[in-house]
Lab assay of single mutants.
Amino acid sequence: ELSWTAEAEKMLGKVPFFVRKKVRKNTDNYAREIGEPVVTADVFRKAKEHLG
């Protein structure tokens, strides 16, 4: 699991709890794919757009 900024964690907190774990995993995987060592708010937004 990658490191997350406080802002990205806050955004994740707005995701319904029953899918939060999956969203975190998918976002981590997306960040790795694009070469990001940390999940930022920008990476979170891009993952959301990319993953739907």
Rank of each mutant, 00 (worst) to 15 (best):
F17A: 12
K21E: 15
N29T: 11
V38W: 06
L2Y: 05
G13R: 14
T40Q: 02
K25P: 02
R20C: 03
S3D: 09
L2K: 05
R24K: 12
R24Q: 06
E7K: 07
E9Q: 09
S3Y: 12
D28P: 00
V23D: 02
G13H: 13
E7H: 05
A41G: 09
S3Q: 14
V39L: 01
K22P: 04
V43Q: 02
E49H: 11
K48C: 07
N29M: 13
R20S: 03
E1S: 12
K48Y: 13
L12E: 00
W4A: 00
E7P: 05
K21L: 13
P37Q: 11
V39F: 00
A31I: 02
V19Q: 15
G52E: 13
E36P: 00
F44V: 04
V43A: 03
F44W: 04
V19F: 09
V43H: 02
A47L: 05
E1Q: 13
V38C: 08
D42F: 06
F17M: 10
E7T: 06
A31G: 03
K10E: 15
K14N: 11
E1V: 10
K22H: 14
G35M: 06
F44Q: 01
E33G: 09
K21M: 13
G52Q: 14
A41I: 08
L51D: 08
K22L: 14
E49G: 11
E33D: 10
K48Q: 15
V19L: 15
G35H: 06
A6W: 09
D42Q: 08
R24Y: 03
I34N: 12
A31H: 00
N26K: 13
G13P: 04
Y30N: 01
K21Y: 11
L12P: 00
S3F: 14
V19H: 14
E9G: 04
F44M: 04
A8G: 02
K25D: 11
V19E: 15
T27E: 00
N29H: 11
H50R: 08
V15G: 02
K14P: 03
L51K: 10
A6P: 12
K25H: 13
E36K: 05
E49T: 11
A6Y: 09
P37K: 11
A6D: 13
E33V: 10
T40L: 01
V15S: 04
A41C: 06
T40Y: 02
Y30D: 00
R32D: 03
E49L: 13
T40P: 00
G35P: 02
F44H: 02
K48W: 14
R32H: 08
T40I: 01
L12N: 00
K10Y: 11
N29V: 09
V19S: 13
V15L: 15
S3E: 14
V19W: 15
F17I: 12
M11S: 04
K46V: 05
A47W: 12
R45E: 08
T27F: 09
N29E: 12
T5V: 03
V19T: 08
K46S: 09
P16N: 06
T40N: 07
V39A: 01
S3A: 12
Y30S: 01
R45N: 10
D42E: 14
R32M: 08
N26M: 15
K46F: 05
R45P: 01
V19K: 13
V39H: 00
A6E: 14
E1N: 12
T40K: 02
G13D: 14
E49P: 07
V15N: 03
N26Y: 15
K22S: 12
R24H: 04
F18W: 15
K46Y: 06
V38L: 08
A6G: 07
W4C: 01
T5I: 02
G35C: 06
K48H: 12
A6Q: 10
A31C: 06
N26H: 14
